[in-house]
Amino acid sequence: MLKLIKIKSLILIFSVFFALSNEAYSAGGETYDLIKPGFSFEGPTGTYDRAQLRRGYQVYREVCASCHSMKQLAFRNLSQKGGPEYTEDDAKLFASEYTVIDGFDDYGDPVERTRILSDRFPNPYDSKEAAKASNNGAYPPDLSLITKARSGGYNYIYSLLQGYGKEIPEGTEISDTLSYNPWFPGNGIAMYQPLYEESVEYEDGTFASIEQMSADVTAFLAWSAEPEMEERKRLGFIVMSFLIIFVLLMFFTTTRLWKDVH
């Protein structure tokens, strides 16, 4: 009976963790659950959809990148395994669209060169202060880790991107410089609606609806936050399979060894 209680209490501990991870958002009396479209990278064997990551990178490049940095990413990451997997030449081409100050010449003047694979993504602003000044005093967060840095994860980002244009419930005051978004804590978000139908023209011909672009860029951001995910799950499968067999072997070894002890 006591063993049962211990097991039960363990289950309780873990169910508390999982209960905490599922949050609901309330705005003006209405409750909004996170929209969960179901991404390809979910579940123990889920992987990223390469075409989706490429579309997502296009949305980031053409829309988000004008305000949001992604300082943890280098252009070489675009061609690495488990990501969008562009060819190295394509990744080089993306890099060459941007310049970077790299050292000084013999006269002490800064030398500007085009970016190469080993360079990071460019930052749209020179400083945090400049970023704030251009965005009504709000700092557009770096997006490299954003799906890990928000409770609700990628579903929160996906929901947030579609949370614009909703009617402001009565009794909710949103300041002029903010937009109403039921999923944003406090409901007033400094980011204006970023995505409109056909904000980008997809290279692969996919129709750029708001849902499509939100899902694509969310997938790209999820990859950026966890570029190791595919390798992690692949290795995880091997380790877990090995462990399960090993546990069984250890179980039989232990019972056989202890059989004669009374």
Partner: peptide
């Protein structure tokens, strides 16, 4: 049978540790 079980288990342990 006992030897076989013990040797297999031991081998798994060694492979696991090496990995």
């Amino acid at each position: 049978r006992r030897d076989f079980l013990y040797i297999t288990t031991g081998a798994f342990g060694v492979v696991g540790a090496a990995s």
